[in-house]
């Protein structure tokens, strides 16, 4: 999956200048950076939820892109209804798939509950399960575990890992947790004030950061 170079500006002021990236199939690429570095803007633009100055940087022919926003919207129906909303194919298969996903994220007991009555962590798990009802060529997750406790975070990471292995999709995982990036990702994009400051394999970036900003970031987050 190729992300072409693009820029994004608001009222003439540039907020993101991205030189492009290649996301190999079946690999997880973590996007790290401080607040306001442009992580969510990058996710939105690649997902097609926001236009860049040059249009969409991912070709439609590259395959379907699934995107989990930072604040996913729980539609006013049951949890199971939310999952079935994104179901391809037959009803019976969709119900089976929904049941599997809810089981894996430990929200099966909430299947009949109205989604807008869920807690923040439950909503996040429901939204991830809803997204994973389909197969994608690229999966973009914008801080999917921000509202979750440790157990839910661990379940989420395990489920995404299983999904990636089963479907062979590339994953773009936005996170501000360096520990999570270390656990889940093969490669890293480090954004700094709207620019890509460093990119490369996780192990190399952690052991030999080339920019003082990344070194400072790693020191601060205790890598």
């Amino acid at each position: 999956m190729i992300i072409r170079p693009f820029t994004k500006s608001y009222g003439g002021a540039p907020v993101l200048d991205f030189p492009g990236a290649s996301l190999p199939e079946g690999e997880v690429c973590a996007v790290i950076g401080a607040n306001g570095s442009g992580k969510s803007t990058l996710a939105r633009i690649v997902a097609g939820a926001m236009a860049s100055d040059q249009g969409r940087p991912v070709l439609e022919q590259a395959g379907p892109v699934g995107y989990l926003p930072q604040r996913p919207y729980p539609f006013q129906m049951t949890v199971e209804g939310n999952l079935l909303l994104n179901a391809p194919g037959g009803r019976a298969d969709a119900r089976r798939r929904a049941a599997e996903l809810m089981e894996q994220l430990e929200i099966a007991h909430l299947a009949r509950k109205k989604a807008h009555h869920l807690s923040g962590g439950e909503t996040a798990r429901m939204a991830l399960a809803r997204l994973l009802m389909r197969r994608y060529a690229l999966l973009i997750l914008d801080e999917p575990t921000a509202a979750m406790d440790i157990r839910s975070t661990s379940l989420t990471e395990a489920l995404v890992d299983r999904y990636r292995r089963e479907t062979g999709c590339a994953v773009l995982w936005i996170t501000h947790s360096l520990k999570q990036a270390q656990r889940t990702a093969d490669t890293v994009l480090f954004l700094l004030r709207g620019r890509l400051a460093e990119a490369g394999p996780m192990t190399r970036l952690l052991s030999a950061p080339t920019t003082p900003e990344l070194r400072q970031f790693l020191d601060f987050y205790g890598a």
Binding site: P64, Q76, N86
Partner: peptide, 24 residues
């Protein structure tokens, strides 16, 4: 904005997104 972004993330078209918004 939230409905549109979520629907876009799920790959739903404009027509279906509008119907979802009406339902919401």
């Amino acid at each position: 904005p939230a409905v549109r972004e979520t629907a876009r993330g799920l790959g739903l078209g404009r027509g279906r997104t509008f119907l979802l918004l009406v339902s919401e």
